[in-house]
Amino acid sequence: MSPPGSLQFCVRLLRRQLVLAVRRPIEIGNPLLFFAMVVALFPLGLGPAPDQLAGFAPGILWIIALLSNLLTSDAVFRSDFEDGSLEQLLLAPQPLFISVLAYIGAHWLITGLLLALVSPVFALMLNLPGSAVGTLVLSLLLGSGVLSLVGCIGAALTVGLKRGGMLISLLVLPLYMPVLIFGSAAVKAAVTGAAAGPYLAILGAMLCLAIALSPLAIAAGLRISIDA
């Protein structure tokens, strides 16, 4: 029997990752809970002035999305490393470039996509104008993809370390900055009625670049982590 093609294998891996995630619902719920908690804390800390909150809302929402992504990306390869599945993945005949896309895809689906979909509720809590909600969702959809791709580079490099969490932050936070800047700028533009399109286009371009390059870095990082 010949081994499956790389795309077929990628789909199989994606399905496996999603089934694993669904069987540990706490890992899906955690980022959402984190998002809800922090959003609920901001009005208490900043004072319940609706106008003021609306001004800060784009930045607040984007920073929380970024942090919740950072918190979860640490675990993408962790359990597969610990039980030996990662070694087997590295020995698979299919190219690692395609295979890791399944891991990233699964991570994005259960964090980025979910956050983007529920973000209108949180936007409402922070009094973000209704006209900017569409842009918020769109910018989170694009931006969280970049965050997942970049976060997985850090995860791949630190998966062999006992306490990789802090190191991940140091490694990937600088790469998160452009996403944060353009993501929140898109939402701010939408709030003031300016065109958000250019910012979204730049986020899209970052996403394309990240899809093309980060699997290379992730594959190399995983090989180094397994070798050590």
Binding site: M1, P3, Q8, R12, V19, R24, E87, L91
Partner: peptide, 30 residues
């Protein structure tokens, strides 16, 4: 093509034995 079995089993506790084999990450046939 080679098959490697290491110290760690690579068996996922959250999957059934059937799923573990059907979706194995070593990329063998279906």
């Amino acid at each position: 093509a080679l098959l490697y079995l290491g110290h760690q089993s690579g068996v996922k506790a959250l999957l059934t034995p059937r799923e573990n084999l059907a979706w194995h990450v070593a990329g063998e046939g279906q």
